[in-house]
């Protein structure tokens, strides 16, 4: 019996180790590669050589540092816009009874499931009509299609779970719905806003299809497109070192944020059920 238990424990921890190694190794290996240059790149090594020259190459390229700023500006503006519209909308959907509420919720959920390719042709026309092709605003507008339904949905589930009493006192005192939102709900919603905003930010930061289609010049690219397009002197010569350095640069902030906020993110993901 004792032996059996020991065996079970060993098997269990072996499984844990496999899960951890499989999850972490690829990113670790990207870090190792990002610190290798020349022939070191082509030997399979498991420890970083701390050679920073790939990072210097990538950050020295003006287009790539531009891409980082583009990504930050686009993702932050998209999230700000989505949160601004969704706080009031979530209040209406969560706390007010009206006809067609269920239908509206299903429609919002439906939009979040849209295949982005289905709107691509129509959005292209709209953006070209507004003269926004190859500008950050083209992406801010198109990212609303997945950030807005997501933020509305998560904030609605959050608000629905708050007790009635907190609102009642204010309503009895004669507060208007606007006052109720700004004075009663907003102070309670900061944690939810931070989590939802972070998830929406990650979604916008990682988006590829719209960014690939609506940007045309190197300086307008976001980081995913810039990384996908990094190329060497010839077709055969893929610059793996700089690609990995660029990948690590755009990923480390995300990994740190996700690890810092992990509890909140898990709660937000499961409440929303929607992938950020």
């Amino acid at each position: 019996m004792g032996n059996n238990k020991l065996l079970k424990n060993v098997a269990f921890y072996a499984l844990v180790v496999v899960i951890v190694v499989f999850s972490v190794f690829p990113f670790y290996y990207a870090i190792v590669t990002s610190f290798s240059t020349g022939s070191a790149l082509f030997e399979a090594r498991f420890w970083p050589a701390w050679d920073w020259s790939n990072y210097e190459t990538v950050m020295g390229a003006r287009a790539f540092s531009r891409s980082i700023w583009n990504s930050i500006f686009i993702a932050a503006t998209t999230v700000g816009f989505a949160l601004f519209l969704s706080v009031t909308a979530a209040y209406a959907l969560a706390r007010v009874r009206f006809r067609g509420r269920g239908l509206l919720l299903m429609t919002i959920l439906g939009v979040s499931m849209f295949p982005q390719i289905a709107v691509l042709a129509g959005l292209f026309e709209l953006i070209r009509f507004m003269g926004l092709l190859n500008s950050p605003f083209a992406l801010i507008i198109s990212y609303t299609i997945f950030t807005l339904p997501f933020t509305v949905w998560v904030l609605t589930t959050f608000m629905r779970d708050l007790p009635v009493e907190i609102e009642e006192a204010a309503v009895v005192d004669g507060a208007t719905p606007w006052i109720v939102i700004t004075k009663v709900f907003l102070p309670l919603m900061w944690p939810a806003l931070v989590t939802t905003g972070l998830l929406a930010f990650i979604g916008a930061w990682n988006e590829f299809l719209f960014a690939l289609t609506f940007t045309q010049t190197e300086t307008q690219r976001t980081t995913p497109v810039a990384i996908a397009m990094l190329s060497g002197a010839s077709v055969q010569e893929i610059p793996w070192g700089p690609i990995m350095a660029a990948s690590v640069i755009v990923t480390v902030p995300l990994v740190v944020l996700v690890l810092v906020f992990q509890r909140k993110i898990v709660a937000g993901l499961t409440a929303g059920g929607v992938k950020g």
Binding site: F27, Y29, N206, P224, M244, T251, Q262
Partner: peptide, 21 residues
């Protein structure tokens, strides 16, 4: 739990490049 969150946090394009390497 923190370790398994890492693949999820990595942008798809970055994971595609990492794995193609």
């Amino acid at each position: 739990r923190a370790a398994i969150l890492i693949p999820w946090a990595i942008p798809t394009i970055v994971s595609a490049k990492m794995w193609s390497w």
